[in-house]
Design a protein around this nucleic acid. Structure first.
Lengths: 232, 232
DNA sequence: CGCATACTTGACGTCATTCAAACCGTGTGG
DNA sequence: CCACACGGTTTGAATGACGTCAAGTATGCG
């Protein structure tokens, strides 16, 4: 299926938004849309000649597996996000769909050609890559020293903002996009600890759980202050 | 002081290596060299209009500070590494010199102009940025779940490789570029734990300590296997 | 209805932090 | 030259957080 940029929901926010109408058309002719359902694998670690892609709808996770078969979520990709190895000879991590998702994929060499041809695109990708770097580093900052409670509080806080329409206020009610197991993998904790700390946050009055996935934000300020606390 | 690319030790490995002789000369005319001594601050978090730079000799650390004044090392920069915010309105983290260092600095707008003018440079920076992303993610992978012992073993293993002339064999003897406190900050541990685990590694026969900073690698294979172990 | 999957909760053990004290190499002043 | 203080480091003992193991509770699906 070829691309239909005209109706693309991320046409103004994805990397390709910096292209002129003609340039976009040229790039689009090299791309293909792809749909993934929950749990489906987009790239596998070790794949050679991986493609790259812009996420249009849904959500992806970037996952590392260590020797024990344990998995660790390294990043989440949201719509308009770009994913793919442009330089390494093979993919380093698995990329898996968290929900039903829709993407525009490009062969690596087509994208390389586009980068050389359109300087603005290279800039846009560089910018995105640096943003990814920042978010990886803030995750690092969080996981390195923070207590289980802070990590979880911070994650819920982030999700509340991501789920909100307005960029500055958190949504007061939303569904967690991840299972307990995925949250645990993301924060470097166990399922049991995540569950326990969720109970604690509820007891403290910061949140209320609504079913398995639903979260109601009762005291965002408390949540924020908890997210800054370290050990002790 | 203006740049002397001819004698630059990283002229073939830094981002500017992709430029032609003329292009390099043009970029060089916009750059300045700068020397830092140990502990000196290159950029501070919150700085607006930060410059960017290529590290020529020495080493830098990228540091985040949390509310309690605790610091966390997010990344190390080695010679030929590139550092600087090209897009964010202000710097997110402090950048501090670990040893006496030498850099080529560029005003942000000069670098932006160069990116637009030389597509190869944009590609080179994109590549570097993705490498930084990978190293941030592998640090994440490490700090999230690994025991103190594994983290330390992995770090020593990395330093042994970084200190080696050949890229595939570790140096059998080298100096740690960081103090115990910096190691602790980097791994999300305390000074005491780092010290204890160094003792343990020595007791096990993986390494031998030579003075405060010196490390002799007795059993690289053991070290590597320890670096893969998790809790339990 | 029965089974599977996800989640919650409790008891217990392990590991890293915390607090405290001692150690070592270096530089300073008597 | 020695005493002394100082920063970086090592080591010990006690506390507490999180993991492990295990049992129990939804929720959904065939």
């Amino acid at each position: 299926m070829s691309l239909a940029c005209a109706e693309c929901p991320v046409r103004d926010s994805a990397a390709c938004a910096v292209l002129s109408e003609e340039e976009r058309k040229a790039l689009a002719s090299a791309g293909r849309t792809r749909k993934l359902s929950r749990g489906e694998l987009l790239f596998a670690a070790g794949d050679t000649d991986t493609a790259c892609a812009t996420l249009v709808t849904g959500a992806l996770k970037v996952v590392a597996h260590n020797v024990d078969g344990n998995e660790q979520i390294l990043a989440l990709i949201h719509p308009s996000g770009f994913i793919g190895e442009m330089f390494a000879p093979f993919a380093q991590h698995d990329v898996v769909s968290l929900t039903d998702s829709q993407l525009c994929t490009f062969a690596r060499k087509d994208m390389e050609r586009a980068i050389d041809e359109y300087p603005a695109l290279a800039r846009a990708l560089l910018r995105r890559s640096q943003e990814d770097l920042h978010s990886a580093r803030s995750m690092l900052e969080r996981t390195a020293r923070a207590s289980a409670e802070s990590r979880l509080a911070a994650l819920i806080h982030d999700f509340a903002h991501a789920a909100s329409d307005s960029p500055c206020h958190p949504a007061s009610q939303f569904d967690l996009p991840l299972t307990r197991g995925e949250i645990a993998n993301m924060l470097g904790l166990t399922i049991e600890t995540v569950s326990r700390k969720l109970s604690d946050l509820e007891k403290m009055g910061a949140i209320r759980r609504k079913g398995k996935r639903g979260i109601e934000l009762l005291d965002p300020a408390l949540l924020l202050s908890l997210s800054r606390k370290e050990f002790g």
